[in-house]
Computed example of a mutant assay.
Amino acid sequence: MKVTRNCLILVLLLSISGITTAENRYFRSIPDSVYTYSYNRDNSEYELASITYNYYQNGILDSTVTTSTERIPVSKTVNIYNEGLPSSVWTYKAEGQNWLATQKQEMFYDNYRRLASRVVTVWRTDHWENLNTFTYFYDHHSNLKVYHRDYWQNNTWTDFSTDSLFYDHRSFLTERTAWLTSTNQYYTRMLYENTATGLKLSQTRQDYLDTDWVNKAKTRYIYNGCGTLTNTYGEIWLNGNWEPDSRTDIYYHHELLPGRRRVPVCHNGHTLYIHVSQLANHLAHGDCPGECYDPDDDTEAPPHPSDRGRRIPFTVFPNPATDYITIRMEDQECPVSGIELMDYYGRPVRKIATDGEEVITIDLGSLRSGSYILRIISDTVYSTIISRK
């Protein structure tokens, strides 16, 4: 079946939460490596300290390897997933040609697929030993509000501290404060500064000494013109001033989503829509992939010119879904050429062939409850969330 020239990829997110999400319609930016620098106060220069490389499988972060400045492996983390959620994280140290396990974290989730608890254990010569456990609690908006930290002492769990999190009217995190259970006094806190659209600009750590909060460390976050994090700068509080301490540089590769012929780049603060054949040349000259981002603009972005005047060409029901979903096509000028069902992390679960049908039914009976992506070749990119019970 032939698809009209302006038909693009349509994505529907099927999730328990029922909240509509937005996503970049053109690119997927994937961090490949992070270069970490320490600040040398003798010569006032940043010096390379380590490099971390990210490795992916099916679009999901599988492992990270940190090396020395000579590119000699030092440590590694490996992520294990279960039903699309990280279930454990293993940390290793390099010893010769071998990797030796040093720590593991196990994650457990509630019925809403939110992190409910995390248990950290460490390797002690010949056995695993408990280290910490964290228990998480949420408000009715699913914002994390409180978590407890216990530590392992004398073969039993001991309540160590409790962290409380505070949000502004936009649900942006502004403060996280911890106090010690043993003394019932403040211990440390993090203060967060955000842009009008929710990007984190800085986080400041303060410790509670005597009767007042004292600055300790700060991290500032730097974004490119498209709103992608490119650098962080660490500072420490010395003699009443913030002094440089560290820096990270983050490098990405950008995956172009299928069906794109013209894409946006941010060029000198202006968004240009270019043919994909020109993309490499623009990136080589310092343009970033995507529409220009204004961190102070909290208004909703206007629709792309190709989206104006268009309506969603189909409906999906029932919502929530139990055994099946039905897709009813409502615009024959932009037919569907194929449908792909994926899990929440983009891994294919099922492909459905189409031949111009007006009504398509997809059986969900064999799938677990949770999050899935329904990818449809149609006229533009939408994101909506429906429930699979």
Rank of each mutant, 00 (worst) to 15 (best):
Q105K: 15
I30D: 02
P348Q: 02
L14S: 08
R205Y: 03
H267G: 01
T183K: 11
A217P: 14
R118S: 10
T125W: 13
Q57W: 07
P258Q: 03
L272H: 12
Q203I: 02
V336I: 15
I16E: 08
V336L: 04
Y221D: 06
V119L: 14
I386E: 03
T384R: 14
A280F: 06
H275I: 02
T158F: 13
N281Q: 12
S306D: 12
I60W: 01
D32M: 11
S15R: 15
V3I: 12
Q105T: 14
C266L: 03
S378N: 13
Q105I: 09
L13W: 04
W123M: 04
R388A: 07
P348T: 00
Y81A: 01
D168R: 08
V359Y: 05
W157G: 03
R28N: 11
Y251L: 07
T204P: 07
R247L: 08
G18V: 04
L367A: 03
D62K: 15
V265F: 01
D331Q: 07
W90S: 06
R28F: 04
T354S: 05
P335H: 00
A94Y: 10
N43K: 06
G198L: 03
Y136L: 09
S277H: 09
A101T: 12
N130Q: 06
V214I: 15
W123G: 03
Y53H: 13
S171K: 15
P73L: 01
Q57V: 11
E70S: 10
R189M: 08
I339K: 02
A217R: 15
A116N: 15
E255I: 14
L209K: 14
E83W: 13
S17T: 14
L85H: 03
P86A: 00
L12E: 11
S202Y: 07
S277K: 13
P73T: 00
T232N: 10
W90A: 02
L229T: 06
N111R: 14
W152V: 01
T4C: 07
E47I: 15
V78K: 08
Y186L: 05
L12K: 12
T232D: 10
R308S: 05
R113V: 05
T232P: 01
S369V: 08
I360L: 06
V381I: 09
Q203C: 04
R311K: 14
G356Q: 04
L367S: 04
V89T: 09
L238S: 11
H254W: 10
H141C: 06
G309T: 00
T162Q: 14
M329K: 13
C334E: 07
E330C: 07
E23C: 04
L279V: 02
D207C: 03
D42S: 12
G227H: 07
G365D: 09
D110Q: 05
H141D: 08
P335M: 01
S383E: 10
N319C: 05
L180M: 09
G198H: 03
A321F: 06
D210F: 09
Y37D: 00
D287G: 02
V89I: 15
W152S: 06
I376C: 01
N154F: 06
S164Y: 14
N58I: 01
T326C: 08
L367N: 03
L173C: 05
N111E: 11
D343W: 02
N54P: 12
Q153H: 13
W123V: 04
T133L: 05
L374R: 04
